[in-house]
Amino acid sequence: MNIIVCYKLIPDSEDMVIKPDGSISLDQAEQVISEYDLLAVEAGLQLVEKNGGKLMALSVGTDKLLNSKSKKDILSRGPDELYLVTDASLANADTSQTAKTLVAAIKKMGDCDLVLFGEGSGDLYFQQVGLQVGELLGLPTFNAISKIDVADGKLTVERSLEDEIDVYSISLPAALAVTTDINVPRLPSMKEILKASKKPVVEWSLQDLTITGDGKPRVDVLAVRAPKSADRKRIKIEGSPEDVAQTLIGYLSKEGVL
């Protein structure tokens, strides 16, 4: 079976710079694979290992995707091929633009039995792109998938909702977004890292895809800023454990919370 797994490259939030006016800058941030998407990659890899077929990774974004380190990074985690769609206009793409671009790429990639997504992107965490792509492709589409098995050309999946776990039987092809506990992704091995630089990478521009639509964002971003931290008292309590306990109890009674 042929599987496409969609992953996003995001700025490492550890490199986020908060400017004095409260706005944030990610210009200098390292680009990393969104952590949740690694679980989708692992899920795809396990299915291909069990059932044969090919795993293809797909991402859309700016030319930051073309950086050789990040290409090697994703390929060292198991996919056989990598597909990248880049355009400067995708820098601040909303879920709708991202989904439409992914759909155009998936159509161009040819036959595929399953499209996998992470639970949500590590930066924006809308948890939407997978569902939108599935709907636009007209495929059986589900989120919150915590287990996937394939037999006789059908999928059996576990879906983990708030109060219940459902087991569904779904026909292929399908689009699924996985949960954060579906698996524990393995770390790339030396051999996979060495193999990664030899795997095929296909790079497309938006012109290479036939995308219909106006290309305009559906959501405007008005501001991005650091959260205001509430003013806290920050009273230090020092001393022996016993003294600390007494002092704390004193404060808490005064606050009226004991």
């Binding site: 770390l187 790339p188 091995s189 030396m190 890292i193 060495l194």
Partner: peptide, 12 residues
């Protein structure tokens, strides 16, 4: 070093 052809294996 990578450009010159060395194979870098990070994270190991």
């Amino acid at each position: 070093a990578e450009e010159a052809g060395a194979m870098l294996v990070p994270g190991i």
